[in-house]
């Protein structure tokens, strides 16, 4: 492995981080918009958001990415910058999973809170923004953490479309040197470290969010707890499975 190859790989990390951040931002917007729409009083909003979730959870992220890259330019004449197409594909897909987390979080807030909001004459939107969401969001953070790690893993797909992220640079390095074992173990290690850092950040956010609403911060585990990224969360991808729910 030459210095240039390592440098290329580090540039790849930057691309991966950027993709993760942009898609997570888009995904979060989609998740909150679609997730709250699923609890709306208007059937048309509920139907449209339900349809969105069914479609984007039903299809495969990679297939959608290929579709955006190859079909949309031909069919509609829009040519995306590759980074944007990738961000769009990841954000829209993972946003649909996120919408289910948002919906679940909202549903988990006690109905009495809604009633108290009605009794104080808040508008439906005020109830959502001032009463329901502030209580629901801290509960959403652990599943969002899991989803974020799925998203980070999902960014590797863009290498198949020629975007020079870590996985793509790893391929180039392998072709140049033939040292498959070293390169891939190193790359996997980098993803693992990124996932670990993401988890730390989300834990911090969760602790602050819970302290901000008067709940005791969650206990942090010991050494093994730090090692085991998902110490407390049970199923990670269960929410990632189906198209319905």
């Amino acid at each position: 492995m030459t210095a240039e190859l390592w440098e290329a790989i580090f540039k790849g990390i930057w691309i991966t981080v950027q993709l993760t951040v942009y898609s997570a931002a888009l995904g979060a917007v989609v998740a909150f918009a679609v997730g709250t729409a699923r609890t709306s009083r208007h059937w048309i909003l509920r139907f449209l958001s339900g349809f969105y979730v069914a479609v984007f959870r039903g299809t495969s992220a990679l297939v959608f990415m290929f579709w955006l890259f190859f079909v949309v330019p031909l069919a509609f004449g829009w040519q995306f910058v590759p980074m944007w197409a990738a961000t769009l594909a990841l954000g829209l897909t993972y946003g649909a999973y996120g919408a289910e987390i948002v919906r679940g979080g909202i549903a988990a807030v006690a109905p009495a809170q809604r009633e108290a909001g009605i009794a104080l004459s808040f508008t439906p939107w005020q109830r959502m923004r001032r009463i329901i969401l502030p209580q629901a969001v801290p509960e959403m953070l652990p599943p969002f953490n899991n989803l974020l790690i799925e998203l980070l893993k999902g960014t590797a797909l863009v290498s198949l479309l020629g975007i020079p992220d870590i996985s793509f640079e790893a391929q180039l390095a392998r072709l140049a040197t033939g040292q498959s074992t070293t390169i891939y173990l190193a790359i996997l290690g980098m993803y693992f470290v990124l996932a670990f850092l993401l988890t730390r950040v989300m834990r911090l956010l969760e602790r602050r969010a819970k302290a901000g609403i008067g709940q005791a911060p969650p206990k942090s585990g010991g050494i093994l707890g730090k090692l085991r990224i998902e110490e407390t969360e049970r199923s990670t991808k269960a929410g990632l499975a189906g198209g319905a729910q």
Partner: peptide
Amino acid sequence: GFFVEFIRNTPLLVQLFFLFY
């Protein structure tokens, strides 16, 4: 535990490349 966490938190695509090459 470490092995399981490692596999779960890294991309399947890269794991496939690893196995394949």
